[in-house]
Amino acid sequence: MSGLLEVIALSPADAEHAEAGGADRVEVCGSLEDGGMSPPPALVAQIRAKTSIQVRVMVRLREGFGTDGGEAVRLRGLIASYLDAGADGMVLGFLNGLGEVDLQVCGELVGDTEWPWTFHRALDSVLDVDRAWQALAKLPGIDQVLTAGSPRGVEQGLDELLVRARKNPWAAKVIMAGGGLQPDHVPWLARAGIRAFHIGSPARTGGSYKAYVDEGLVGAWRHLVDAEVRRAPHSATS
């Protein structure tokens, strides 16, 4: 049994190196401002031309996790462009003015589509996490939730991730742990039933986004994730 490893890609070279290192998927961002912003469709096409692994694209145009009707129209247009450019799925997530998952906006963006998508770390900024998880389960097409368990990162949110995965089988299935993820977190997460992991700076030399993704570092994470998932009790995901 193997886990899922996703790597942030900012360029075609990043995607090539991620695939060579054994990543299953890349998350494409145009910039890492405020946790990641949408790339131009041309970049998605360039990355698609350089890799055969799954490509998901960040759908986000402003800081924070709110949006409005006018921007939603632009976001739908971007999604269509990304699909035309060869993206396999999207990464998005919006909250309303009450600090809750914005089911209306998210529902409008994903519609009745058949492409899979990830709800990103907006989850870590909600006011009521239990209620947010109930809301996420209502959204069509969602198959991954990128979360650190805390807005401060996995180090601070590890206990929340472990408890959530153990108490909620659906959460364990869709959680993709990321946001300050470190190698020593992986065994704990795997034992709790989490099988998907997301890395950004740890895939780069010196942990710097000024460097390209490093094939060797991705390979080391690939080995770690698979070893810990195989070692974890099978019952954790049953």
Results as ranks from 00 to 15, higher is better:
Gly3Leu: 07
Ile8Glu: 04
Ala9Thr: 08
Pro12Trp: 00
Pro12Val: 02
Ala13Gln: 13
Ala13Lys: 12
Glu16Trp: 08
Asp24Asn: 13
Val26Ile: 15
Glu27Lys: 03
Glu27Thr: 12
Gly30Met: 08
Gly30His: 08
Leu32Gly: 08
Glu33Ser: 15
Pro39Gly: 12
Pro40Leu: 09
Ala42Phe: 09
Ala42Ile: 12
Val44Gly: 06
Val44Met: 13
Ala49Trp: 03
Ala49Ser: 14
Lys50Trp: 02
Ile53Tyr: 10
Gln54Asn: 07
Gln54Phe: 07
Gly64Trp: 01
Gly69Pro: 00
Gly69Val: 03
Gly70Thr: 10
Glu71Thr: 11
Leu75Asn: 03
Gly77Tyr: 06
Leu78Val: 04
Ser81His: 11
Tyr82Val: 10
Tyr82Thr: 04
Asp84His: 14
Ala85Arg: 03
Gly89Tyr: 03
Met90Glu: 03
Gly97Asp: 13
Gln104Thr: 08
Cys106His: 01
Gly107Phe: 06
Gly107Val: 05
Thr113His: 05
Trp115Met: 06
Phe119His: 02
Phe119Thr: 03
His120Glu: 13
Asp124Arg: 02
Val126Ser: 06
Arg131Asp: 13
Ala132Arg: 05
Leu136Gln: 04
Ala137Asp: 12
Ala137Met: 13
Lys138Thr: 15
Pro140Asn: 10
Ile142Arg: 07
Leu146Ile: 08
Ala148Asp: 11
Pro151Ala: 10
Arg152Trp: 15
Val154Met: 09
Glu155Ile: 01
Asp159Gln: 13
Asp159Ile: 01
Asp159Thr: 10
Val163Arg: 15
Arg164Val: 05
Lys167Val: 15
Ala171Val: 09
Ala177Gly: 11
Gly178Asp: 10
Gly178Asn: 08
Leu181Lys: 06
Gln182Met: 09
Asp184Cys: 09
His185Cys: 09
Arg191Met: 04
Ala192Ser: 12
Ile194Arg: 01
Arg195Trp: 00
Ala203His: 06
Arg204Ile: 05
Gly207Ser: 08
Lys210Met: 09
Tyr212Lys: 10
Tyr212Ile: 01
Leu217Cys: 11
Val218Gln: 01
Val218Trp: 05
Gly219Thr: 02
Gly219Glu: 00
Trp221Gly: 10
Arg222Ala: 11
Val225Ala: 13
Arg230Met: 13
Ala232Val: 05
Ser235Trp: 09
Ala236Thr: 07
Ala236Lys: 00
Thr237Asn: 05
